[in-house]
């Protein structure tokens, strides 16, 4: 038997991309927020927003039903539920939803959070590309692995 399906489930694609998306958002923020001495931190807000981008994108690689269920996730509880469903998935991860629909839905969620449109669109498109590329590479490396005899 091969290990392809199992290793997709074990590889935490959400965790792997949340940090990168958070960095993208932080960089965009720092471009727009430069001065001040007394401030209120927003670092955890960025982590939350990064999850709001990465989780529905990964859902879109599982099924349109899962994507529609979590594309508008508004709370950490909902995002945690989505992550649990992603972790349970054992099939291959390939695009199941039209790219434009994924981008529009997630950008709309970021706009509700106050993120400027150009920042939101840039971050969502790049994260979608990064995740797609990452999954394709994983799939390819799994296919090229020699079969393990049980």
């Amino acid at each position: 038997m091969t290990t392809s399906k199992k290793s997709h489930a074990k590889y935490d694609i959400v965790a792997a991309h949340e940090a990168a998306t958070k960095t993208m958002l932080r960089d965009a923020l720092e471009q727009k927020d430069r001065t001040g001495a007394l401030g209120l931190t927003g670092l955890e807000v960025l982590a939350f927003m990064a999850a709001k981008v990465v989780v529905p994108i990964v859902c879109s690689f599982i099924s349109s039903v899962l994507f529609n269920k979590y594309k508008g996730a508004e709370t950490k509880r909902e995002l945690a539920e989505a992550k649990a469903e992603i972790a349970k998935h054992e099939g291959p991860l390939t695009p199941q939803v039209d790219r434009a629909v994924v981008i529009d839905s997630i950008v709309a969620g970021l706009l509700r959070e106050g993120v400027p449109r150009e920042v939101a669109a840039g971050v969502v498109e790049r994260t979608l590309d990064d995740i797609g590329r990452d999954l394709a590479e994983k799939e390819l490396s799994e296919k090229n692995k020699p079969a393990v005899k049980g």
Binding site: E30, D33, G36, A37, G39, L40, T41, G42, L43, V45
Partner: peptide, 8 residues
Amino acid sequence: LHAGTAGN
């Protein structure tokens, strides 16, 4: 500044 703020 403090980088990454919601307001300052």
